[in-house]
Design a binder for these strands. Sequence first.
DNA 1: AAGACGAAAGTGGTTGA
DNA 2: TCAACAACTTTCGTCTT
Length: 301
Amino acid sequence: MDMDEEKCPECGANLVYDSEHGEILCESCGIVVEAVIDEGPEWREFEGDNKRRARTGPPRTVMRHDHGMGSQIDWKNRDASGRPLSPRSRRQMQRVRQWDRRTRFSKAADRNLAYALLELDRMGSSLGLPRSVRESAAHVYRQALAKNLIRGRSIEGVVASCLYGACRMCSVPRTLDEIAQTGRIGRKEIGRIYRFLARELKLRTVPTSPEDYVGRFCSELKLSSKVQRRANDLLRTAAERELVSGRGPTGVAAAGIYIASILCGERRTQREVADVAGVTEVTVRNRYKELCERLGIEVVV
DNA sequence: AAGACGAAAGTGGTTGA
DNA sequence: TCAACAACTTTCGTCTT
């Protein structure tokens, strides 16, 4: 805006300077065009060459999201000298207030998002997640933010839940425990927030299948792709015979890998498999027993 | 000695009244 | 909201390699 212009931008009338209130306002409609906020002393800073001229303003405060640097707009429909505003300028003030609210809110949202994305990146790289998964997590977070679902929940918790959901949506699931290890948020809380987000945002997630874990677990166990394929075949036929429903997918995956590793002559101990799958030997044993029984597999030791 | 096995009791989460 | 319930864990003793 060109401040040399001496006309009111709203009605085109002349502007006057109100020395008592320190404002430049329109003599006809009373709208404040420019306000001198700080009546106190004005310092200038000359550092080296006088190219940099910084002006000081009111002290900043950390108590407000914008450090107190935002503008404040009165709610009263009075002009600077206390007269009621004309209907026209009342409408104008409504619009100004509305925009003030909007930018105030969007600033807060920006800060929230900036912090969240930082956190998301940190957790994501700590989990070794590919870019596509992080992006989809960020997308979920933006949706949650837009729908005001963050309020009352920790940003870290929501970020963790978004990552968990994104992993599932991309069919590269991580367990709640794995996600929880990257931050200060517990497994229970992440699960709770995730369920909430899934319901509110109608996230389209299918139940996790054991096969989704096979690749990762196998590579952590340094097993060949032959074992990996064998395990997947095994689990697929197991799924067809409804051996999988109701069981924890990681446990089933672990058992499948355990069997496949024996069948392919690359045996791993129950403990090793159980550890990477985040279950106990006992669970591996139980699943493994069931699979052998129902699939008619005879494991020769 | 290490791994595998299984029984028994305990834990946390889901479900249905 | 509470109790029943299934899956899973913890613990521990025994058997096998």
